[in-house]
Simulated scan of single mutants.
Amino acid sequence: MIRYVHFELRLAITALAALVVTVVVLLAVRGLSAWPDPWLWYGPPAVMAAVLVLWTPLRMSRLKGFSMVLEFEQAVPREDPRGVLPTDGGRLFRGPFRPFLHFALALVAIALIPSLFWDPYLVFGQLYLAVDWLCKGLVIAHWERRHGVLLWHGHDRNDPHKLSYTPVIRRPPTQTATDAPPA
């Protein structure tokens, strides 16, 4: 089991690491001549940023087909309110980095091979994935904070993508010996 926001952030970090590896290998093999037009360095990322700036509020909305919020509201409460991770987590999440390392290698292979032989601008797909997962993490964190719960991913062995939630356990306010509020 893993917190859903942590899962999305790990995916984003994995995609960024794959992007760095892909760009370094691409520059080592093809050199700077692979990107002759400087506008193409800034154009695709600007378009991606604009799309994601418009797409993220749609994910926060309740519009069917766009909303992530509807998925969050279908989450089931967990029996353990403390949110302690079980030691026998599902196979999908076993080991802290193993599945993400395999995923990073797959991302590198998928983007590097066509970029070497065809168009180097395919690496922007990795950038889009990384920023998209970061935006999903922001949507999840916003929803968790707003509703006072933590979303968990992978609590059900039969359906590892099913979400559950636990309430946030707030610490009691500190008290002084005279019951005066802390300064």
Rank of each mutant, 00 (worst) to 15 (best):
A34K: 00
W35H: 11
W35T: 12
W35Q: 01
P36Q: 11
P36T: 13
D37S: 04
D37H: 02
D37R: 13
P38G: 06
P38I: 04
P38W: 06
W39A: 04
W39V: 11
W39D: 07
L40H: 13
L40G: 08
L40C: 05
L40M: 12
L40T: 10
W41T: 06
W41K: 02
W41A: 09
Y42T: 08
G43N: 11
G43Y: 10
P44Q: 06
P44H: 03
A46M: 05
A46K: 08
A46F: 06
A46Q: 09
A46C: 07
A46E: 01
A46D: 12
A46S: 15
A46L: 10
A46N: 15
V47M: 10
V47E: 12
M48H: 02
M48A: 11
A49N: 14
A49R: 07
A49K: 04
A49E: 14
A49W: 07
A49T: 10
A50H: 10
A50I: 01
A50T: 12
V51R: 11
V51P: 10
L52R: 14
L52V: 07
L52D: 15
V53I: 08
V53A: 08
L54I: 08
L54G: 13
W55H: 09
W55C: 01
T56A: 04
P57T: 05
L58P: 02
M60N: 06
S61I: 03
S61A: 09
S61V: 02
S61N: 01
R62S: 14
K64Q: 15
K64D: 09
G65S: 09
F66N: 03
F66T: 05
F66D: 00
F66H: 06
F66E: 01
S67P: 02
S67K: 00
S67Y: 00
M68D: 06
M68I: 00
M68E: 03
V69D: 03
V69T: 12
V69S: 13
L70C: 04
L70H: 00
L70V: 03
E71A: 08
E71I: 06
F72H: 07
F72P: 14
F72G: 01
E73Y: 04
Q74Y: 00
Q74K: 02
Q74N: 05
A75I: 04
A75C: 02
A75S: 03
A75T: 01
V76T: 15
V76W: 01
P77I: 03
P77N: 06
R78E: 07
E79Q: 04
E79P: 03
E79C: 05
E79G: 02
D80Q: 15
D80M: 01
P81S: 05
P81I: 13
P81K: 04
P81D: 07
R82N: 15
R82W: 12
R82P: 01
R82E: 13
G83I: 07
G83V: 09
G83L: 05
G83M: 09
G83C: 11
P86Q: 03
P86Y: 00
P86R: 12
T87W: 02
D88A: 09
G89M: 06
G89T: 12
G89L: 08
G90N: 11
R91I: 15
R91N: 04
R91E: 08
L92V: 13
L92N: 09
